[in-house]
Design a binder for these strands. Structure first.
Length: 195
DNA sequence: CGACTTTGACCGGCGC
DNA sequence: GCGCCGGTCAAAGTCG
């Protein structure tokens, strides 16, 4: 509609120029975009600053494809940006990190190797399509995921991950590649590092 | 029978 | 204070 998603103050826009589309195998993806969701808890995020900073962490995970033979998938994990401008009340709330990406896909829900339980469905403003809410069904894991079709172009699916899994993928995840640009303490990436 | 989905209701945050 | 909106809950239904 009126709002280009790349201008959405809640997201940092990433094109897929340097990114290999992980879902290309079994879906009709022709585009994949990532958004690093900035902490919207208060300050209006100066997101442009985040783009230039090396915040991205990309891990490639290969799983056994138990749901119809998907060969591999790649998880993009982006450290949530921290606004430490004024060193003033340093983020007491634990948001974990949030990743959103937009893919062109025929299917709504992508199999990322984790097991999700649907807990809500909602029609949201500026989008004629419903938004679906999922939780990770693993015990003790509170990662959430939102899935919605792009209101402008229903060929695109916007998926937002909220939080970090504290366990491995139930379908044999092998993290065979990982690029760590930098790290902070509030993200439990040790589950990734062990590989 | 257990796990999951569906769906309306409820709640809290935020803008006016 | 009020209304809108997004997110979550929970009961009922469905499926394997």
């Amino acid at each position: 509609m009126d709002m280009d998603i790349s201008q959405n103050p809640s997201f940092t826009y990433f094109s897929d120029e340097n990114f290999i589309n992980p879902f290309m195998d079994n879906n009709d993806f022709s585009n994949l975009m990532f958004f690093d969701v900035v902490d919207e808890g208060g300050n209006s995020g100066l997101i442009e600053q985040e783009i230039s900073s090396p915040t991205s962490i990309i891990s490639s995970e290969t799983f056994t494809g138990e749901s119809g033979g998907s060969g591999s998938a790649t998880t993009l994990i982006k450290k949530e940006s921290r606004r430490n401008t004024g060193s003033k009340e340093s983020e007491t709330k634990e948001m974990g990190h949030r990743v959103a990406f937009r893919t062109r896909s025929k299917i709504d829900v992508m199999d990322d190797g984790f097991k999700w339980r649907k807990y809500g469905k909602k029609s949201v403003k500026n989008n004629i399509n419903k938004r679906n809410y999922y939780k990770c069904s693993s015990e003790g894991c509170s990662v959430k995921k939102r899935v919605e079709r792009d209101g402008e172009d229903a060929a695109y699916v916007i998926t937002t991950y909220d939080g970090v899994h504290n366990h491995e993928s139930p379908s044999h995840v092998y993290y065979n590649e990982m690029v760590l640009s930098y790290d902070h303490d509030n993200w439990n990436q040790h589950s990734l590092l062990q590989c």
